[in-house]
Amino acid sequence: MSNSVPAASPDTARLPRTAWPKVLEGQPALVTGANSGIGRAVALGLAQAGADVAVNYVVNPESAEEIAHQIEGFGQRAIALKADVSQEDEVEQMFAKAINHFGTLHISVSNAGLQRDAPFDEMTLEQWNTVIGVNLTGQFLCNRAATREFKRRGLVESVSVAMGKIICMSSVHQEIPWAGHANYAASKGGIMQLMQSMAQELAPLRIRVNGIGPGAIRTPINTAAWSTPEAYADLMKLVPYKRIGEPEDIARAVVWLASDASDYVTGTTLFVDGGMTLFPGFATGG
């Protein structure tokens, strides 16, 4: 008799609702790309943990406003802010509005990201620049704005033992090459080095900088990879834990990294991937 656990189906892999402790009270947060997918779950998770949240979006303002109302339903303040994170002036205006609304920020989650896939020799400069602009330059601009605010405000130990917390949303593809996605993989590898360099520089100020590397997560951007039993079974060949990740898996990790429970953690990437970075193809000896 086999002791292995069968892979969950696309319809049964979802997680139970999380009960969130209020570990982030008094710590306003800004989350980019927060009106869908992982960003939405992160914004709601931070709010349930006690943070006020600025919900960034570029398109679909209705979704951003709906999430802001959900956050207010948890008893927290919220504001929806439109900004293209690849544009310096828009990022600066967004942070200024969030800081004016909440008084300050303690947490910044750079989550906004996109794909423009193509075979390498067919990839256009526009496809390359668009992905690098949002995924990598956007993180630089948002993290710089957050750092400036943390330093302006200074340490408030009654609120948090850290001056500020920056979380960079990366991907398993900062480690795993991805043919047909050279721009995306390059952006994620760049995020890793940006995060680590920032963490090294900012640690003496008690500003903590960490990354999260999601694996296969159930979001609208990758519906084709999990929406049918056949696609799901194929996906599970890459996931030793044999279930797809849920956006709430990432939200839980963000809340922990933003809380004082992780105070001695900086400069690291937390992979939330069901073991995808364990190179499952070698499980049987390669």
Rank of each mutant, 00 (worst) to 15 (best):
S2H: 15
R14W: 09
R17D: 13
A19K: 15
K22Y: 11
L24C: 13
E25V: 15
I38T: 06
L44N: 09
N56Y: 05
V58I: 04
N60K: 10
N60G: 06
S63Y: 02
A64F: 10
A64H: 06
E66C: 00
Q70H: 00
E72M: 11
E72L: 06
F74V: 12
K82I: 08
D89L: 03
A98F: 00
T104F: 09
L105H: 08
V109T: 01
V109Q: 08
L114G: 07
M123H: 03
L125C: 09
L125A: 06
I132F: 06
L141F: 06
L141N: 05
R144A: 15
R148G: 12
R152K: 03
V159A: 15
C168D: 08
H173F: 13
P177Q: 15
G189W: 01
L194H: 01
S197M: 09
S197V: 01
A199S: 00
Q200T: 10
N210A: 12
G213A: 14
G215C: 03
A216C: 09
T223K: 13
A224H: 09
T228C: 11
I244P: 05
G245R: 06
E246I: 11
P247L: 05
L257M: 05
S262Q: 11
S262R: 04
Y264A: 07
F271Q: 11
V272P: 11
P280L: 02
A283L: 14
G286L: 01
